[in-house]
Design a protein around this nucleic acid. Sequence first.
DNA 1: GCCAACGTTGGC
DNA 2: GCCAACGTTGGC
Length: 147
Amino acid sequence: MKSEPDLFGIDDLKNRPGRTEPWDGVRNYQARNYIRDELKKGDLAFFYHSNCKIPGIVGVMAVADSPSPDTTAFNKSSKYYDPKSDPASPRWLQVTMRYKRKLKRTITLEELRSHKVLGKMKLLQRGNRLSIMPVTSKEWEYILTLE
DNA sequence: GCCAACGTTGGC
DNA sequence: GCCAACGTTGGC
């Protein structure tokens, strides 16, 4: 799961009360579908810093609840307001994420790209812009051995 | 700051 | 339904 450290980084999550944060504002259908279909309470996720000097994986977090409607879509004063999301049939979903730990070091995008076995990772696919995407268990375990 | 890649919008 | 125009993402 990507986030821009200038806006909300791993330390921001760590410093939140309860070390949790609602992951709202996702406005991409594919990412929405991953929230809806793939995320279960207790699942682990990498925290990825994007759009910054050294993009890469910086930590581990966990899904803290079940997916629920993203109510920022109904809030006219929210930057995530979406008039097409009907409260009776919410278009966008969110999930709460809980801080687990920081990696001992950042595993940079550049480093991830240098490992041939990770070549199929969604994150590394050309042109990928998804903010939420699956990691296979093999990829997960391999990446943690790099730490 | 540039720009490739991608998603969305809206005219037709 | 097509596709040009536009907006966004995000690495570099």
